[in-house]
């Protein structure tokens, strides 16, 4: 009996509920300028959605800061023609520019977020998200631009499907499971998956939008291979191999994964898995030793019959409220003249 207890302690992961570090938005000033021009020249009084492509990358492990979810000057683009820097991963979204502060305020935001959640859920159920994992990171942006004072009020929504009952083991360093050689093999294999190069010419630096932020890892007889998400059935049915669901993690924390894992787990639920091994892929150039592994116990696929989405971004003070950026100090020519010597 005593031996039995020890065995139980050793072999079983202790499961607990999981918390995810939310995305952190970062809007380049050049985006605001571009958006202001776009509003004046093209949108005019229209408050329709405009396609927008954001991007993020793995966490900065040197400084232990999360990567930011960026929109920049090139974010307003046509679908699949965006310019995403190498090692960054695109996320499709839309921006709605309101004409008045009242319109921004009165806009029914809960419905908006719920609709984003429904879109994510539909992309999961139709299989579209397997072919284009970026659909899991769909986002929305609401803006009121006061072009007279260069003050922008904005609010990001990063919809995540609610998964009640989800439990996971503690994050462990990848080195507990993968040898140094296997880590190197995984890093190489992922590089091949995302384009096959470690060096880029300047022309190649901006790609048409890498779409491998979520991928699969198969370990067969010590051999490690990164596979696209679209090979799901093939990978998970490959006999006595170890299979992992992996994602490029914008979070640097030792005990928590980043936001993109949430919808990826929702996808895993619909594929009928009861448990899944996760790799929080955290590369630092070719070194992936800061990556983490955990095991998740999934609720059934029925959680997606009535999908519920959460994910309004909070302000830096932690409040559920829009953010404001005031570009007047950067734009006002009188102020500029005073600062310049």
């Amino acid at each position: 009996e005593y031996m039995g207890t020890i065995f139980a302690l050793r072999c079983c992961h202790i499961l607990m509920s999981l918390q995810f570090q939310p995305f952190n938005s970062f809007v380049e000033v050049a985006f605001w300028q571009h958006l202001a021009n776009h509003k004046l020249d093209h949108l005019k009084l229209s408050e329709n959605d405009v396609y927008l492509e954001g991007h993020y990358t793995a966490a900065d492990l040197t400084h232990q800061t999360p990567s930011c979810f960026s929109v920049d000057r090139q974010s307003i683009c046509t679908e699949n023609e965006g310019n995403i820097p190498v090692n960054h991963y695109k996320a499709p979204g839309s921006v709605t520019v309101f004409n008045t502060m009242d319109a921004f305020r009165d806009f029914v935001k809960n419905t908006y977020l719920a609709n984003l959640g429904v879109q994510v859920s539909q992309d999961i159920q139709s299989g579209a998200a397997l072919r284009s994992p970026s659909l899991l990171n769909r986002f929305g942006l609401l803006v009121y631009a006061d072009l007279k004072t260069w003050k922008f009020t904005y609010w990001f929504a990063f919809p995540a499907l609610s998964l009640p009952g989800l439990e996971a083991s503690e994050l462990e360093p990848i080195s507990k499971t993968f040898s140094d050689g296997q880590q190197t093999a995984l890093s190489r294999s992922f590089t091949v998956l995302t384009g096959g190069q470690t060096r880029y010419t300047p022309e190649e630096w901006y790609t048409s939008g890498a779409d491998n932020a979520a991928f699969l890892v198969r370990v067969c007889h010590q051999e490690v291979k990164a596979c696209p998400l679209s090979q799901w059935d093939e990978v998970f049915s490959s006999g006595d191999c170890e299979c992992y669901l992996a994602f490029v993690d914008p979070c640097p924390l030792a005990k928590n994964p980043g936001w993109p894992l949430r919808n990826l787990l929702a996808l895993a639920c619909t594929r009928g898995l009861a448990t899944v091994n996760i790799i929080c892929y955290r590369p630092q150039a070719a070194d992936i030793s800061k990556s983490c592994i955990m095991q998740c116990q999934l609720p059934g696929a029925s959680v997606l019959t009535e999908p519920k989405a959460v994910g309004w971004e909070r302000t830096s003070a932690g409040k559920l409220a829009p953010r404001v950026v005031d570009l007047a100090p950067m734009m006002d020519h009188k102020l500029l003249a005073e600062t310049a010597v």
């Binding site: 509920s17 999981l18 918390q19 995810f20 570090q21 939310p22 921004f104 305020r105 009165d106 806009f107 029914v108 935001k109 809960n110 609010w155 995540a160 609610s162 998964l163 989800l166 924390l253 928590n256 949430r262 959460v310 994910g311 309004w312 409040k319 559920l320 409220a321 829009p322």
Partner: peptide, 14 residues
Amino acid sequence: DSMGVVEEDDSMNL
């Protein structure tokens, strides 16, 4: 000003 957004019941948001 949360502008109509209901405080989210999301224990999984770190």
